[in-house]
C-alpha cells in the first residue's frame, strides 16, 4: 500500500505545544503542506505574533522572525520592501490584528503591500488566559466579560475582513474555518490563493480563519469544533469577501 498522507516536509518534527483540538495546529499543518506543494520553503518568511502562536517558529521549517504585538503588518512591509523576492506572511491572532495592530493592518492593506496575513479569529485571547477579544461574540463569556459581552459596554465583535475589503489596496480576502474536513480543505484552498495573489504581486491578501480554542471556550475539542458552525459563523459568515483576480480557484 502507498502512503497517501504524511507529515509535510516544511513542518518540523517538534510536537505542537498547542492544546488538544486547537485550530493553530490545523492551520500550521495546512500552511506547511502548501509551502511544500507550492515549492516555497526556501523563499518564505513568516512573522508570528506574541500569543500562543509565538512558538510557530518552532514548527515551520522556514525563516521566521517574531514581531511585537500587533506590528506584524509593519514588520512584513519593511521586510518585503527590502527583499521583494521573498514570500512574506504574517500570522496574527484577533487581538494582534484586530485590536492593537488595527492601524498597521489597515494601512499595509491600503498601500497594497504584497504580503499575506493569516488571521486566526478564535474570539478570545488565548495565551493570556481567555480574556475578551475584539471579535468576542455578544453575550459570550470571557474572563474580562464574566457576565457576557455587552454591546453597551464593550461594543460589537469587529469584522476585519469586511473592513479590509473596503480598502482599495486589498486584493483577496476570504473567511474560512478549520472545524471540519470540508472546511479545512476550503481553508487550505484559500491560503493557496492568498499566496498566489502575493506571487502574482496583486496586493494585500488575508485569510481570516475561524479557529477553535477549546481550552478558553471551556469546551471539549469536538464541542468547540461544532460551536464554530452552530454559533460563530452566524456572526462571521464564511466565504470570499473580496477577490480582484476574477478567478475562482488558485492557479
Amino acid at each position: 500500500m502507498k502512503k497517501i498522507y504524511t507529515r509535510p516536509k516544511s513542518l518540523k518534527r517538534t510536537p505542537f505545544h498547542y492544546c488538544p483540538g486547537c485550530g493553530h495546529s490545523i492551520t500550521h499543518k495546512i500552511m506547511t503542506e502548501l509551502i511544500d506543494e507550492m515549492n516555497l520553503q526556501d523563499k518564505t518568511i513568516g512573522i508570528p505574533p506574541p500569543g500562543c502562536s509565538v512558538f510557530a517558529y518552532n514548527y515551520f521549517d522556514i525563516d521566521m522572525a517574531e514581531s511585537a504585538h500587533g506590528r506584524g503588518a509593519a514588520v512584513a512591509t519593511g521586510l518585503k520592501r527590502a527583499y521583494p523576492e521573498a514570500i512574506v506572511f504574517t500570522y496574527q491572532g484577533d487581538g494582534d490584528l484586530a485590536a492593537i495592530g488595527t492601524a498597521e493592518t489597515i494601512h499595509a492593506s491600503n498601500r497594497g503591500e504584497n504580503i499575506t496575513a493569516i488571521f486566526i479569529n478564535n474570539a478570545v485571547y488565548g495565551m493570556t488566559g481567555g480574556q475578551m477579544a475584539p471579535t468576542t461574540l455578544l453575550s459570550q463569556k470571557t474572563t474580562t466579560t464574566p457576565y457576557g459581552r455587552d454591546d453597551k459596554i464593550e461594543g460589537y465583535p469587529i469584522k476585519m475582513s469586511e473592513i479590509l475589503a473596503l480598502v482599495k489596496g486589498s486584493a483577496y480576502i476570504e473567511r474560512v474555518a478549520v472545524n471540519s474536513p470540508a472546511n479545512i480543505i476550503k481553508a487550505k484552498k484559500a491560503i493557496r490563493k492568498a499566496f498566489q495573489v502575493q506571487i502574482d504581486c496583486l496586493g494585500f491578501s488575508m485569510v481570516e480563519i475561524l479557529s477553535p480554542c477549546p481550552t478558553n471556550w471551556k469546551m471539549s475539542p469536538v464541542e468547540s469544533w461544532k460551536w464554530i458552525d452552530e454559533v460563530m459563523v452566524k456572526e462571521f459568515p464564511l466565504g470570499v469577501i473580496k477577490d480582484i483576480t476574477g478567478k475562482k480557484d488558485a492557479g
Binding site: I4, Y5, R7, Y18, P20, S25, I26, K29, P181, I185
Partner: peptide, 18 residues
C-alpha cells in the same frame, strides 16, 4: 483510506495508506 482523520488531526499524528 479516505484520509479524513488525517485532514482533521491537529497534531499531524496520522499517516494514511491506501
Amino acid at each position: 483510506g479516505c484520509a479524513i482523520c488525517a485532514v482533521v488531526c491537529p497534531e499531524v499524528a496520522i499517516e494514511v495508506y491506501r
